[in-house]
């Protein structure tokens, strides 16, 4: 018979983890489907379980600043619905939460659960990737921090140890000039992603200083290619400099004052378009979706790239 544990505190939870292998249940909205059996039979958990959804100590979202780094800390048991309506939740995460599942599921589901489930179609994951999320794992011997891209190893697989639980997720706290989130599901609500895209970026004086993009549901894990992001930012800067090297009317050049957005429309925009198209093409190599019962690879790939293009154009 499967035993169920209900820790009285967060410390108690960690203590239980050292003693028995357990499946951790926060909201349970993924697990209760995965393990379901015939009606009125208990789900087929093949070991003990530990309920953590009630642990108030790790239910929070708070902004912290450490060594000039502004970060947001999201506790493991705060529900998606609580996050959705919290003032400290970043806009792009709010957009993702708003299209996840349904109100009923959001009332008990957690971000930690979404991460632990490690579904290729997890709606919050692309956002967490571009916010440089760090997963904080805790055991009774201490804590360790794992960047999300190292924590999620594949569909349904994470780097969690059997004596650990997720304590919190730490994300960047930035004011992005542009945030863009789009989930394409089979319908407008309560749907599994066919393709999911998250993008954010900032500009200073018309120059792109930060650009981050991530794709969901187009590979076994979220696709984020930092090298291409950097290359894109650099290429934009180079293009801008080359534009700004055109002498002004009095023959003087003032590169630092050139504002890309207010430049000479026609040649700038053609050059910009070309650059954007090339960027999209480069990303195409990394977007490798599959055919399944929800959609096909051709559509998923094209839409992923369309969304990227749309985002870059808006940036």
């Amino acid at each position: 018979m499967v035993l169920s544990y209900r820790p009285v505190s967060y410390a108690d939870a960690l203590s239980i983890l050292t003693k028995v292998p357990v499946t951790i249940i926060a909201g349970g909205t993924d697990l209760m489907v995965k393990k379901r059996s015939w009606s009125n039979l208990a789900p087929t958990f093949d070991g003990d379980v530990m309920f953590v959804g009630h642990l108030e100590e790790i239910s929070y979202i708070k902004k912290l600043e450490k060594s000039n780094q502004k970060r947001i800390h999201i506790g493991a048991t705060i529900t998606l619905e609580e996050l959705l309506y919290h003032k400290d939740t970043p806009e792009i995460l709010r957009q993702a939460l708003g299209v996840m599942a349904s109100p009923a599921i959001r009332h008990t589901a957690t971000l930690a659960g979404n991460i632990g489930n490690a579904s290729p179609a997890g709606d919050s994951l692309p956002v967490l990737y571009i916010l440089n999320a760090i997963v904080v794992l805790a055991s009774s011997s201490g804590e360790r921090q794992v960047p999300i891209e190292d924590f999620i190893l594949g569909p349904g697989k994470t780097a969690i140890n059997s004596d650990e639980m997720i304590k919190e997720i730490i994300i960047d706290d930035c004011n992005f000039g542009t945030v863009y989130y789009k989930k394409v599901g089979g319908r407008k609500a309560d749907a599994i992603s066919k393709v999911c895209f998250a993008g954010c970026g900032s500009k200073v004086d018309g120059q792109i200083t930060d650009m981050r993009v991530a794709f969901g549901a187009v590979g076994p894990t979220v696709v984020r290619v930092r090298s291409l992001e950097e290359a894109c930012v650099n290429a934009h800067r180079a293009l801008q400099l080359s534009v700004s090297e055109k002498p002004s009317e009095d023959g003087l050049v003032e590169p630092s004052k050139v504002n890309f957005d207010q430049g000479d429309e026609s040649s700038n925009s053609i050059a910009r378009e070309q650059l954007d198209s090339e960027t999209v093409k480069k990303f195409a190599d990394y977007v490798r979706p599959i055919d399944d019962q929800r959609s096909n690879a051709i559509y998923r790939k094209q839409i992923a790239l369309n969304l990227l293009k749309d985002f870059i154009t808006k940036l």
């Binding site: 319908r187 609500a189 599994i192």
Partner: peptide
């Protein structure tokens, strides 16, 4: 049949 759950076989919600 490939779509044999209400997750995979899409019917409209009130938002649709």
């Amino acid at each position: 049949v490939q779509q044999k759950t209400v997750t995979d076989y899409i019917i409209p919600t009130a938002s649709d």
